[in-house]
Every structure is written in structure tokens, then in C-alpha cells.
């Protein structure tokens, strides 16, 4: 008896070994390496300078705080972070407002149409991410139909012509477009599990349409909203492809600067500093989100 129980415990550890090893090797270790790199000097041709140098027979550590000082020495990077957070927050909120009615409709539709609608939500994943952004570039292009029609209409009211390309509007539209499924799917998964009798009971006990939504459906869907928000917020925070292609000179985000440090500026240590800040921001958001959903999951309106 004892043997089999011990065997079970053993197999449990054995099962969690591969994912643990994977996370250690490919997440924890690189993060530590990146943290360490943020205190090193850049190499002459990119890469990193050696952190241990021989100085007259003496081995000395060659580390520095310069990279971190550079971050806090100016408000450029702080402003970039704030701007990126602004984009991430607005994308998340817009996704939430657009995804909620959609997810609710899918969750409450019949079995057959539900499968079809879900398929439509994930359909964009069938083509490449970059190809889809290029498609938006064609739509927003100054000679594209959308811009021409819009400017034609604006001209009727005497308003000047506008460009859609390389504007914050184009950025937001594309960011929302790319990340909407990541909000819809967790929300749908949550809403679909709601017990329909709860709404019947609320109605039976005197709650009208809006109160049924705000007192029952909404609070019960908060875990889904939290999961969706994390899935949207974090990728948008580090996004560089969309600002690169659609953002123009003003549309730069922190992800672009990080990419620049590693690719063009060949300043890996400073790139590591910015990446560390981004990682910490992401971890904070996840922790906040999980705490919020855990609190709400077992909390009423008190």
C-alpha cells in the first residue's frame, strides 16, 4: 500500500519534470542572463564585452551601472514606456468593448451557429501575421479606396484631407484587429460556462435586463475579462512589428527601441535594461490580474 502511494507521488513529480526543466532552461535562465547582461559593457562590434578581464595577472569583474543610469538619466524612455502602456491600455479596453457582446452572442447562440462563429473568430490565424498587417497597409494607403472615399466625404464638408497611414488611428485599428481573438476566446470560454438558471433566478427574483447583466453576468465574467486582458495587454506592450509598418516616425513604441538596441545600435546591455523593465511590467500586470480575478471570483458586491 505504502509503496503504491509513494509511487504515485513520484510519478507526479516525474510528470512535472519536463515542463519545469523547459521553463528553467528557456525562461528562467535567459532572464537571469539578460539581467546580468544589463550590467555589462557592449562589445566593440555588437554583442557583449567580457565581464571578467585580466588586468596585470589580476582577474577583475568588469561590470557597470551605466546602462541603468542611462535609462533614468533622461525621460525619453519613460515617455516611451508611458506611450506604450497607453497603446496597450486603449487596445485592451477597445478589445474588451468589442469582444464582450460578440462573446456573449456566441455563448448564447445555438450549438451549430456557435461552432461556425468561433471558426470565424479564429479564421484570421490561418494567414500570417505580417501578411495581415500588409493588408492593412493597403487599406490605409493614401491612394487606397478607404482614404479616398473618406477624403471625398470630408471635402464635401470643407474639411481638409487626412492620411490614415502612419497615424495612431491606424496603429490602434491594427492592434485591435490582431488581438481581438485573444479577448474573445477566453471571454467566450467563461461566458459559455455560466449557468443559465442563474439569470432565470435573478429575473424571477425581480431583476430586469440591465440588473441581470450588471449583477450576475458581469461579475461572473471577470475572470474571463482578466485572462483576455492579460493576453492582449502584454503582447501589445512589447509590440514592434505594427508600429514599424504602420506607426511612422511618431508611432514608435518601446518594443521598437529594444529591437533597435539589439539590431541597429548593437548595444545589447542597454537593450537588456529595457527588456528587463518590460518583463517586470508584464509580471506586475499578471500578478495584479490574477489577484483581481481571484478576489472577484469569490466576492459579491460588498
Amino acid at each position: 500500500m505504502l509503496k503504491t502511494v509513494q509511487g504515485k507521488v513520484w510519478s507526479k513529480y516525474l510528470l512535472s519534470l519536463p515542463p519545469m526543466a523547459y521553463l528553467l532552461i528557456f525562461f528562467a535562465a535567459p532572464t537571469m542572463i539578460m539581467l546580468f547582461a544589463s550590467f555589462r559593457y557592449p562589445g566593440e562590434y555588437g554583442g557583449l564585452a567580457p565581464w571578467l578581464v585580466q588586468d596585470g595577472g589580476q582577474w577583475t569583474l568588469d561590470l557597470t551601472l551605466e546602462n541603468w543610469q542611462r535609462l533614468f538619466g533622461t525621460d525619453i524612455y519613460l515617455r516611451l514606456f508611458v506611450k506604450s502602456i497607453g497603446y496597450a491600455v486603449s487596445t485592451t479596453l477597445i478589445c474588451m468593448f468589442m469582444a464582450y457582446p460578440l462573446a456573449l452572442m456566441i455563448a448564447r447562440s445555438g450549438r451549430k451557429s456557435r461552432d461556425l462563429l468561433l471558426l470565424l473568430v479564429i479564421l484570421p490565424f490561418w494567414s500570417n501575421f505580417l501578411v495581415r498587417i500588409y493588408a492593412w497597409m493597403i487599406i490605409f494607403s493614401p491612394v487606397g479606396a478607404l482614404t479616398r472615399i473618406l477624403n471625398g466625404v470630408l471635402d464635401l464638408f470643407g474639411a481638409g484631407p487626412v492620411t490614415l497611414m502612419y497615424s495612431p488611428t491606424a496603429m490602434i485599428v491594427c492592434l485591435v484587429y490582431v488581438h481581438l481573438p485573444f479577448m474573445v476566446l477566453p471571454l467566450y470560454a467563461n461566458l459559455e460556462k455560466h449557468d443559465p438558471y442563474l439569470l432565470d433566478a435573478a429575473q424571477d427574483l425581480g431583476a430586469g435586463k440591465w440588473r441581470r447583466f450588471w449583477l450576475i453576468t458581469w461579475p461572473l465574467s471577470l475572470p474571463g475579462i482578466t485572462a483576455g486582458s492579460i493576453l492582449v495587454f502584454i503582447p501589445v506592450l512589447g509590440m514592434f512589428a505594427i508600429p514599424d509598418l504602420l506607426g511612422g516616425t511618431d508611432g514608435i513604441m518601446i518594443g521598437n527601441v529594444i529591437k533597435q538596441q539589439f539590431m541597429e545600435s548593437r548595444d545589447w546591455p542597454f537593450g537588456s535594461v529595457l527588456s528587463m523593465v518590460l518583463t517586470v511590467a508584464a509580471v506586475v500586470v499578471v500578478l495584479l490580474g490574477s489577484r483581481l480575478s481571484r478576489q472577484r471570483a469569490g466576492m459579491g458586491g460588498s
Partner: peptide
């Protein structure tokens, strides 16, 4: 239904899981 002066006890009780017992009873 919300305006009918009658209430239903559902087979699965349909207690609101995100509200305490007191909040559940306070609902109507």
C-alpha cells in the same frame, strides 16, 4: 417574470456563486 409576485425554487437551487449567503438572500 421579474414583475410577477411569485418566486421559483430551481432544481439546482441557482444560488449566485459570487455572492455570500446573506447577499443572495438580500437580492430580491
Amino acid at each position: 417574470p421579474e414583475d410577477r409576485p411569485l418566486h421559483t425554487i430551481f432544481q439546482n437551487y441557482a444560488l449566485f456563486p459570487h455572492m455570500t449567503v446573506a447577499e443572495n438572500i438580500a437580492f430580491p
